[in-house]
Design a protein around this nucleic acid. Structure first.
Length: 187
DNA sequence: CCGAGGATCATCT
DNA sequence: GATGATCCTCGGT
């Protein structure tokens, strides 16, 4: 299991090193797991980072200790899952944007309301729905038996691009994904 | 395959 | 009162 020491490092490193790791959720409904294949870094002083304009009710979890989950609602419908990084109080985090489904695919499909695995966890909102992650997990520490991240295979090659869906800081190369992976949210 | 448009609501100003 | 770190559907190619 990846613990606080892993997350208590520079956010860009954590964002890259999370690729290949496995996100696991043991819920009452069953176990689901997926390989992290796409991430984005959100840094201090970065206009796209929710914490860049100070602490508010929504982003309070970002100011918690490294390894804290930050889960919030976007567009009134979908959740996004982040892991808090760096020394406590900087408000930096890594957004998980896509998973390669590994375990509990039937449960994932049921939660998503789809019959095919196509795009099952490809996108921040989709993966939260498939994994059963919602705001009740906001602020939870990731070294918990029900929600944690495990070390996985180190990717052969990582692609760096600009981030998706933001209006500020669009030119910053803070998105990472496993080269050639079929489950990323978009090329 | 691709782009446009709409859904939907907690949080922030 | 405005705004999203999104996704689905639908219509056109």
């Amino acid at each position: 299991m990846l613990t606080r020491d892993f997350f208590n490092r520079p956010t860009m490193k954590v964002a890259r090193d999370m690729l290949g790791a496995v996100l696991i959720h043991n819920s009452p409904a069953g176990k689901t797991a997926g390989i992290i294949v796409e991430t984005e870094a959100y840094l201090q002083g970065d206009p796209a980072c929710h914490a860049s304009r100070g602490k508010t009710r929504r982003n309070a979890a970002m100011f918690g200790p490294p390894g804290t989950a930050y889960i919030y609602l976007v567009y009134g419908i979908h959740c996004c899952f982040n892991t808090v990084t760096m020394p406590t109080g900087t408000g930096e985090a890594v957004l998980v944007r896509a998973l390669e489904p590994l375990e509990g695919l039937e449960l994932m499909k049921r939660r998503r309301g789809i019959a095919d695995v196509k795009g099952l966890c490809s996108g921040p909102g989709r993966l939260c729905q498939a994994m059963g992650l919602d705001r009740q997990y906001n602020g939870m520490n990731l070294s918990s038996p029900s929600l944690y991240i495990q070390q996985g295979a180190v990717p052969e090659s990582i692609v760096t691009t600009t981030r998706v869906g933001i209006s500020q800081g669009q030119q910053l190369p803070y998105r990472f994904y496993i080269a050639g992976n079929r489950w990323i949210s978009r090329k």
